[in-house]
Amino acid sequence: MSALSALPLSGQIINLLAAVLLLISFAMLVQRRILSLIDLFAAQGAVLCLSTVLVAVTTGQRHLYFSAAITLVLKVVLLPWILHRLIRRLNVKWDVEGLINIPTTMLVGIVVVVVAFNLALPISQLAGTLTRPTLGIALATVLLAFLMMITRSKAVPQVIGFLSMENGLFFAATSATYGMPMVVEMGIALDVLIGMIIFGVFFFQIRTQFDSLDISHLEQLKEK
């Protein structure tokens, strides 16, 4: 505990926000209502934005303000809005059916977090930044999002898992190195936005083809 209290206040708050991020990831893993899932995703974006701003204030890295602004616009406002619109247009209010039951998913999730922390341990000792203990959490968020994509059978939750994975990567970049160079971050944000639009197009194509967004329809191409 002494190591923790040695951190300055801002560092402690960032650690707290990282913990919240991890909690939200777990909540997303087990959330079965699709609208709540979108809200959780927006909340994750908000936490991400807040922690980025905090890192920017503490370290004086000016370009992190831009990253935080991009996060706010893209992940808190624009993407959840697009998702909400899509849900309304496609008229899918159904609950999400998991492929594996909730307790099992939770247990696998805990194992994943332990693995992530072990993997990140040698690196976070090197990072030498204010936020270094959070690299493990960032990796855990990425892997939990991955788990979520595996366990869900519907298209929309899979996409939210994909976006949540991107959140984890962004958090990793902020916590490990105070963010990537500006031009790279702009490029990544552009890719995410275009990717989301293509997902939207896909939803409609899948829907017209199969009358449902259940991607277990998409299992015809297999090796015989």
């Binding site: 998409l218 015809q220 191409l221």
Partner: peptide, 14 residues
């Protein structure tokens, strides 16, 4: 826009 091509594209994308 066939069922098979949609599936291939979804798999490719994800």
């Amino acid at each position: 826009r066939t069922a098979a091509s949609l599936e291939a594209a979804w798999k490719y994308f994800i």
